[in-house]
Amino acid sequence: MTTAQATGYSAISSYSRVELMHLLQQRPQRTIAELTEATGLHANTVREHLQRLIDEGYVVAVTERRTTRGRPRVLYSAADGTAASSPVQRRRVRAAAERGDLMRRVMPASTPITLDTEALHQLDAIVDDLVDSGFDPIVDEDDLSLELTPCHQAQAQAEHLEVLCQVHLSIMQGVLTEAGGPLRVEGIRPSCDPTECVVLLSHAGRPAQ
């Protein structure tokens, strides 16, 4: 893990980018002007933050199609793996699956693997994204959970914890959707410590726990 990852530095380590992600997850296809008004940030600052999020595969930018005169606007949406699919995220998902397959061939599991290939590839993708975001996730394939404790970002942004968690969960769901398969994000296991975070997943082929 790099120094940047160890300190939790990522595309959403800045609350301004968390806020932008939250706005785009709530309503896609927003313009720079709309995001500037909603956040109070300067337009150039918004552009810089959005470019960072695009580079990480979290945001997708498209140019609107106009039937009238005038310069077409650029519309920004949070990558969700369906309506807004990021080419960056697609490449990362494929690369994570390839690495995961290689590791499973080189280092066979000590216990039988109970998940299907699509679900394994989804886990490969989400773990890869979490590591890049500064986490060291502990995966429980039987319990279908991801332990992200300690959450450095929760400690640094304690006053914005609810929005931060919502943004994280939506990003994780977008990665799972882009990877394609039966796994979905269900939520966070309740805890009295806001820095403790266990994300719960569900499998379409398994009964709810």
Score class of each variant (00 low, 15 high):
93 V>A: 11
39 T>W: 09
77 S>E: 07
78 A>F: 03
50 L>D: 01
120 L>N: 05
84 A>H: 07
109 A>M: 08
44 N>D: 14
49 H>W: 04
27 R>D: 03
73 R>H: 04
47 R>T: 09
66 R>A: 06
85 S>E: 11
24 L>P: 00
46 V>S: 03
68 T>R: 14
49 H>F: 08
81 G>R: 06
17 R>D: 03
91 R>P: 02
75 L>R: 01
127 V>K: 11
85 S>M: 13
61 A>L: 00
77 S>D: 08
79 A>Y: 05
27 R>E: 10
40 G>M: 10
83 A>F: 08
88 V>C: 00
77 S>Q: 06
45 T>P: 02
124 D>K: 12
37 E>H: 08
94 R>Q: 13
59 V>S: 03
99 R>N: 14
67 T>Y: 15
49 H>S: 07
48 E>C: 02
74 V>I: 15
88 V>K: 02
57 G>I: 06
44 N>G: 12
99 R>S: 13
23 L>N: 06
98 E>I: 14
115 L>K: 01
79 A>H: 07
42 H>I: 09
100 G>R: 13
73 R>L: 04
36 T>W: 01
55 D>W: 00
76 Y>Q: 06
126 I>N: 07
61 A>T: 02
106 V>S: 14
127 V>W: 03
101 D>P: 07
40 G>S: 10
104 R>K: 09
114 T>E: 15
32 I>T: 00
87 P>H: 07
68 T>N: 05
40 G>C: 07
46 V>D: 07
63 T>E: 13
84 A>N: 02
61 A>I: 04
80 D>H: 00
26 Q>K: 10
54 I>L: 00
98 E>F: 01
76 Y>C: 04
30 R>W: 05
88 V>N: 05
116 D>W: 04
123 L>W: 00
81 G>Y: 05
77 S>L: 08
71 R>G: 13
17 R>L: 00
102 L>M: 12
44 N>K: 02
65 R>Q: 12
64 E>S: 13
